[in-house]
Design a binder for these strands. Structure first.
Lengths: 131, 131
DNA sequence: CTAAACCTTAAAGTTCACTCTAAGTCAATA
DNA sequence: TATTGACTTAGAGTGAACTTTAAGGTTTAG
C-alpha cells in the first residue's frame, strides 16, 4: 500500500495530478483507508505505468480514459483493447518515422551551416593575417 | 513571388498562422507589393521549410524565433546557430530513444493482452461446446 | 499530542499554439 | 465595375493538460 506521496515519487506525477487523473477517469477503484486516504496497490502502480507509457507516446488523456473504461468492463473488451493499442502503436511508429525525416533535414542544415561557418572562420583568419 | 495564399498551400500553414508567425518573429523581412500585400520569395519558403522542421521536431515557437533572430544578425552568429541546432538534434534523438522505450512497453502489453485474449476466446469456445 | 500529510469541492490561472472575429480600408482580377 | 481577397490592429476564444488557490476539515506518524 502506497500513499499518494509515495506514488507521486514513484511515477513523477504530482499528488494534484494523481487526483486529477482519478477525477478524469484515468484511474479507478483506488482503495481508501478508514480515514479516507488513498492507498495505492501494486496493481494500481502497474496500471499507472501503462497510462504513463500511453501518455508519453502522445495519447490524449481522453483516449486513455476510454481505454481504462474498457478495462473495467472486463475480458469481453480485450479484443477492442488490443486493437486500440495496436492502432496507437502504428500511429506512434509513423510519427517517429516522420520525425526522423524532419531530423534528417535538420542534420542537412547543420552540415550546411557548418561548412558556411568553416568558410567564415577561414575568411576571418586571413583578414587577421592581412591586417 | 508568392502570395500568402500560395504559401499557405505550399506549407500547409494557414494565412492566419503565417501572419501570426511574422508577428512572433519567426519570419522577417517579407517583401510587400505597392499595395502592402505580402510577397514571399523562394528564400522565404526555404526559411519556412527549416522553421517547419524545427517545429515538427518539437522546438517551441519562442526558440525558433530566437534562432531566426540570430540568423538576421549575420554570419558572426553562425557558430551559435550551429550549436543551437546540434543541441536540438541531440534532444530530439534522446526523445525518440525514450519514445522507443515506451513503445516497447506498449508492445509488451499488446502481447500480454493478446495472450489473455487467446485464452479468453478458447474458454468461450469450450463453453459453447459444453452448453 | 503535535505537526505534517491528507481529504474535499470548486474555480481560477497558466502555457502553448493557434484560431477567429470585428471593423474598416484597399488592391487585384474577371 | 463587382467581387474576391488582402491588409491592419486588437482582442477574445479554444483545447489540452495541468497547476494553483482557497478554505476548512480529518487523519496519521513520530
Amino acid at each position: 500500500m502506497y500513499s499518494i506521496q509515495d506514488v507521486s515519487k514513484k511515477t513523477g506525477l504530482s499528488a494534484h495530478t494523481l487526483r486529477y487523473y482519478e477525477k478524469e477517469g484515468l484511474i479507478s477503484g483506488v482503495e481508501r483507508s478508514q480515514g479516507g486516504f488513498r492507498q495505492y496497490t501494486d496493481e494500481d502502480l502497474e496500471a499507472l505505468g501503462l497510462i504513463c507509457c500511453l501518455k508519453n507516446t502522445g495519447m490524449s488523456l481522453q483516449e486513455i480514459a476510454e481505454f481504462v473504461r474498457l478495462t473495467y468492463q472486463g475480458d469481453y473488451t480485450l479484443k477492442e483493447r488490443v486493437e486500440l493499442l495496436r492502432q496507437h502503436r502504428e500511429n506512434v511508429v509513423q510519427r517517429m518515422a516522420e520525425m526522423q525525416r524532419y531530423l534528417d533535414k535538420v542534420t542537412w542544415k547543420i552540415n550546411f551551416f557548418s561548412e558556411k561557418l568553416r568558410a567564415y572562420e577561414e575568411q576571418q583568419a586571413s583578414r587577421k593575417d592581412a591586417g
